[in-house]
């Protein structure tokens, strides 16, 4: 293993960013319905300035998750976000595939 974090590995990146003194939030897909683009367990990692790596969808809802991450980094309280065609917010941010997903968003502490 190299000391350089693999750019495709959000958990490694989360650890590296934390070590660099950046504030970090971690988003995890915890449930999917229908044709969700990324499977349960997928991660998106976001720092306090809105930089991110990884994905929880095919790029449809990342923007909304990143916006929520700022709150979670501030407060430290985890959140569960839901996106899908039945949800007005999700309709706006648009899961074009028609699936629904639930995303757990938490701060990396310590």
């Amino acid at each position: 293993m190299t000391s350089e974090a693999n750019i495709l590995d959000p958990l490694q990146i989360a650890e590296t960013w934390h070590r660099q003194g950046r504030t970090v939030a971690l988003a995890t897909v915890i449930e999917t319905w229908g044709s969700a683009p990324r499977p349960v367990g997928s991660h998106l990692v976001i720092d306090g300035e809105g930089n991110f790596q990884g994905s929880v969808s095919g790029g449809c809802v990342e923007g909304a998750v990143i916006a929520e991450a700022a709150d979670v980094i501030q407060s430290g309280a985890p959140k569960i976000l839901e996106f899908g065609v039945a949800d007005e917010t999700a309709w706006r941010v648009g899961l074009s595939c028609g699936g629904r997903i639930r995303v757990y968003l938490e701060r990396v502490d310590g």
Partner: peptide, 14 residues
């Protein structure tokens, strides 16, 4: 998630 837990997971994966 606290950083120690994250480190445990990453070490196991490595």
């Amino acid at each position: 998630m606290d950083i120690a837990t994250l480190q445990t997971l990453n070490s196991a994966r490595a």
